[in-house]
Simulated scan of single mutants.
Amino acid sequence: MKDADAPTILCTVDVVLLTLQQGSLHVALLRRERAPFAGVLALPGGYIHAQDDADAQASAARVLRDKAGLQSPYLEQLATFSGPVRDPRGWSVAVVYCALVPPEVLVQAADRITLVAVDGLPPLPFDHRQIIDTAVQRVRSKSQYSSLPVHLCAEPFTLPQLQSVYEAVLGEPINKVSFRRKVDELAMLEAVPGALQTGGAHRPAQLYRVRPAFRQRLSLSARGL
Rank of each mutant, 00 (worst) to 15 (best):
L115I: 08
Q57R: 15
I113N: 04
P122I: 04
R112L: 09
R112V: 01
D55K: 06
V118N: 06
Q57Y: 11
D53H: 13
Y97I: 13
R129Q: 12
P102H: 07
L124Y: 10
Y97W: 15
V96Y: 00
P102T: 12
S92W: 04
K67V: 06
D55F: 00
D87P: 01
P102W: 04
R62F: 06
V118T: 15
L70G: 10
R129N: 03
P103F: 03
P122V: 04
D66N: 02
V105S: 15
Y97L: 06
D55Y: 06
Q77I: 07
A117F: 02
A68W: 04
D55M: 04
T114I: 00
F81S: 02
V118G: 13
Y74C: 10
D127Y: 09
Q108T: 11
T80W: 02
L64G: 10
D66W: 07
W91E: 09
G120E: 14
P125S: 03
L124N: 07
D66I: 00
T134W: 12
Q57D: 10
L78S: 15
D87H: 14
V107G: 03
I131W: 01
T134N: 11
L115F: 10
Q130Y: 07
Q77L: 05
P84C: 00
D119T: 13
R112S: 02
I131L: 09
T134S: 15
P122W: 03
A94M: 07
D127S: 10
V101W: 00
Y97S: 10
D111Y: 09
A110H: 11
G83T: 01
Q57A: 14
D119A: 13
S92C: 14
V116R: 15
V105G: 03
Q77H: 11
D133V: 12
S72R: 02
A56I: 00
L124Q: 05
L100G: 06
A99S: 11
P88G: 11
A56Q: 10
R86P: 00
L64Q: 09
V118L: 08
V107E: 03
V101C: 01
P122H: 02
P103K: 03
G69H: 02
A61L: 07
V85H: 14
F126I: 02
P102F: 09
V116I: 15
D127T: 08
P122N: 00
Y74W: 13
Q57S: 12
R129I: 03
V93M: 03
D55A: 07
L124W: 05
P73H: 10
C98R: 14
L78E: 05
T80C: 04
A58K: 03
T80P: 03
K67A: 12
P103D: 02
V105A: 14
A58I: 07
Y97C: 01
P73M: 03
D53E: 09
R89A: 13
A117T: 02
P102V: 11
P102E: 10
A68T: 06
A135G: 12
L100D: 08
L100A: 07
P73T: 12
P73Q: 06
K67P: 05
P125M: 09
V95G: 11
L64W: 11
L70F: 09
D111C: 08
H128P: 01
A110Y: 01
